[in-house]
Design a protein around this nucleic acid. Structure first.
Length: 392
RNA sequence: GGAGGGGUGGGUGAGUGGUUAAAGCCACCAGACUGUAAAUCUGGCGUCCGGAAGGGCUUCGCAGGUUCGAAUCCUGCCCCCUCCA
């Protein structure tokens, strides 16, 4: 817990794929790194001990949600985010920029910032780059993010440009506010590249954001409805333009296959709600793809959900038992599934790291992807479009 | 023995003459979930044909009747429940 400054060391590269280490005031973390999501200062359903047990090194929380409830001051007075949620390791907070996308009709963007109507009580809040930065300073995470405007897939070129240029101006503002805020010196600030699915704008944004000396650089605005080809293509394109000596963070990704593909294209850090969210609905990762443990075919399976998994659930319970827990809507079911999915992706990252260090990531990737069966892409797209329509 | 209430699709339960293949909920089946407004959402759920639009057939305890038309009204029968004796 000594106040060291943030640092990144690149240990080894295997093609574009990198293995490294970040250093934060609350300890180190090995990269490639997957950060479990703890939006409301908790990885839903799990204790910090359980998150650590499955291999979690850094968790991600959300400044927008914590600002609304319980409030930045409250968290601050209760020991800061680390003390409040009792997570002793590194924490990264997102600024609330993603909520500019996900909150649908409850928000309205302008050059000054984004107006949100609280989903809790309807009250109106105006997030500016300054407020978003100071909120995160107040929460006291190890790594904080610039306030950006994440725009929906399908936006016009004009809309994407406006959001991107706004994001660039806000990035400079966030950097200035953070520098002058009196934040403790170890706290890192990452910039975020936007630009939608327009190749030229992605380059433009990469150049604009890297012109500011952030501690790390994130690829934002992806995994919001575009197809896999675009996700991977823009990830690779942006990563190639980011500095070698800073960590690169692909925001909001991933699924197991996306993690492999992201690292393959030079990404060091990921966060994603997917593993824990789908777990609560019965979906569990296996080396062959995602299964739905609540399906009847698991009703009598004596072995664990994933034979090769070393998580608590797979070590102690049959798939039939987990199946029963979901059928009966028992809370232990979603806890076991959450632990399992986190363990699955975290162990995947550990194995990826080993493979990179041993210069065999290409074959690791090939083997993993040839076995892992992704979920239906067409259905994904349909679902996403409907969701986007509902959210306005 | 007397008084009253009720039998609806797998369950529960609306529906009292046409807009009802019959609400809602549950169960079940299928799909989704990527910087978490999510232990959530979407679709299906009598049967047959169709990719779909749509169309055919059979349904509201049983049997009969009234009516252009019945889950809904009438008659009989069977069964269940509550209270009184």
């Amino acid at each position: 817990m000594t106040a060291s400054t943030f640092a990144f060391q690149l240990q080894h590269a295997d093609g574009p794929a990198r293995a490294g280490r970040i250093q934060t005031p609350h300890g180190p973390a090995a990269t490639p790194l997957f950060m479990p999501v703890a939006t409301q200062a908790t990885v839903k359903g799990l204790t910090p001990e359980e998150v650590a047990e499955v291999g979690g090194q850094v968790v991600l929380s959300n400044a927008y949600h914590l600002y609304l409830r319980p409030g930045v001051e409250t968290v601050n007075s209760l020991g800061g985010l680390h003390g409040f949620m009792r997570w002793p390791g590194p924490i990264l907070t997102d600024s609330g920029g993603f909520q500019a996308f996900s909150m649908g009709s409850l928000r309205k963007a302008s050059d000054e910032g984004i107006r949100f109507r609280s989903h809790l009580d309807g009250s109106e809040h105006h997030f500016t780059p300054e407020l978003a930065t100071l909120n995160q300073v107040g929460l006291g995470a190890d790594i904080i993010m610039c306030f950006d405007q994440c725009i929906a897939y399908g936006a016009t070129e004009k809309e994407v440009r406006r959001a991107m240029e706004r994001t660039h101006r806000w990035a400079a503002e966030c950097h200035r506010v953070h520098r002058d805020s009196g934040a403790w010196p170890g706290q890192a600030l990452f910039g975020i590249v936007q630009g939608g699915t327009f190749s030229g704008m992605r380059d433009e944004s990469t150049e604009a954001i890297t012109a500011i000396p952030f501690d790390g650089y994130a690829v934002g605005g992806l995994a919001v409805g575009e197809d896999k080809e675009q996700l991977y293509g823009f990830t690779g394109q942006v990563a190639a333009g980011l500095p070698q000596d800073k960590p690169r963070y692909l925001m909001g990704v991933g699924s197991p296959e996306d993690l492999v593909e992201g690292v393959w294209r030079g990404i060091d850090m990921f966060d994603c709600a997917l593993p824990t969210r789908v777990a609560r609905n019965g979906a569990m990762f296996t080396p062959d793809g995602r299964i739905d443990v609540s399906k009847r075919r698991f009703a009598e399976q004596q072995g664990p959900v994933d034979e090769g998994c070393d998580c608590y659930g797979c070590s102690n319970y049959s798939a039939a038992y987990v199946h029963h827990l979901f059928r009966a809507r028992e809370i232990l079911g979603l806890r076991l599934a959450s632990m399992h999915n986190l363990r699955f992706v975290l162990r995947l990252m550990e194995r990826i790291r080993e493979a990179i260090l041993e210069d065999r990531f290409a074959s690791f990737r090939r083997d993993f992807l040839s076995r892992y069966r992704p979920t239906n892409e067409a259905a994904r797209q349909e679902h996403k479009l409907r969701w986007l329509q509902e959210r306005g």
